[in-house]
Computed example of a mutant assay.
Amino acid sequence: MRVLATKKSKLIPRIGRPVVLEDQKIAIFQVSDGRIFAIEDYCPLTNAPVLEGIVSGEYLYEPMREYKISLVDGVIQEPDEGQLKVYPVEVIDDDIFVEV
C-alpha cells in the first residue's frame, strides 16, 4: 500500500525525518544528490532508532556503534552484519509516498 509520508519541502538534506506509517517507524533521508530513501527506524544491533545517524553519500553511519548502513538496500556493512528494511519511495511534485 502506498501512503503519503511527508512533503519534500519539509526535508533537510542529510537529516532524517521520522514518520509512522501503518504502525511502522520509518526514517526518511534525502542524500546530497537529491535522492530520497526510506528505511526502518530501528537497528537490530543496538535495538535503538537510526534516525540520528550521520548521512554520507548513500550510507547512514550509526552513532551508537561505529558501523554503516546502506540506505539503498538496508545492508549493514562489513565487518558488522545485519539488514534493515527499506521501503520503496515515489516523489510526485512535493509529495513523498512510501510503499508499506
Rank of each mutant, 00 (worst) to 15 (best):
Y59S: 10
N47F: 14
I39K: 03
K8G: 04
V72N: 09
L84W: 03
K85A: 11
P49F: 01
I36L: 01
L11V: 13
P88S: 14
I76K: 12
Q24G: 06
I12E: 14
I39N: 05
C43R: 09
Q77H: 13
Y42E: 10
D41M: 07
I39A: 09
V75N: 12
V75Q: 14
I54C: 01
E78D: 13
V31Q: 11
S56G: 02
D93W: 07
P88T: 09
P49I: 02
K7P: 00
Y61K: 14
F29N: 08
D33R: 02
D93Q: 11
K25Y: 12
E62L: 12
F29P: 05
T6V: 01
D94P: 05
F37A: 06
E90G: 02
K7Y: 05
P18R: 07
M1D: 12
D80F: 15
R14D: 08
V75A: 15
I39E: 01
A38T: 05
I36T: 08
R35G: 03
V91H: 04
A5D: 03
L45T: 11
V55F: 04
N47G: 12
Q24L: 13
I28H: 03
V31I: 14
A48N: 11
V20A: 10
Q30Y: 08
R14K: 15
P44D: 04
E90A: 02
V86C: 08
K25L: 03
R65G: 14
F29A: 03
L71I: 12
R35L: 05
E58Y: 09
Y67R: 07
Y87W: 00
M1C: 12
K8T: 14
E78Q: 14
K8F: 10
R65N: 11
A48H: 00
V89P: 01
P88M: 07
K10L: 03
P13H: 07
R65V: 10
I76A: 13
Y42N: 06
L60H: 11
V75S: 13
V31F: 01
S56F: 09
G82A: 04
I28C: 04
D41Q: 05
M1N: 14
K68C: 13
L84M: 01
I12C: 06
E40N: 11
D80V: 08
F97T: 05
E78I: 10
G57E: 03
V75G: 08
A5Q: 08
G16C: 10
R2I: 09
L45Y: 07
I69W: 02
I96P: 00
N47V: 01
D95P: 00
P79E: 06
E81V: 09
I92V: 13
S70H: 11
P79Q: 09
A38Y: 08
V20R: 15
G53E: 00
P63D: 01
T46P: 07
V50A: 10
K10Q: 12
E40F: 08
L60G: 14
L21M: 05
R17G: 04
L51P: 11
I15Q: 13
L51C: 12
F97D: 04
L21E: 00
D23H: 14
I69S: 00
V50E: 00
F97C: 03
D33Y: 12
G34P: 06
L60I: 06
G82Y: 02
Y59M: 07
V20E: 12
F37G: 07
A5S: 06
I92L: 06
I54M: 09
G53K: 05
Q24K: 15
V3E: 03
D23E: 15
L11D: 06
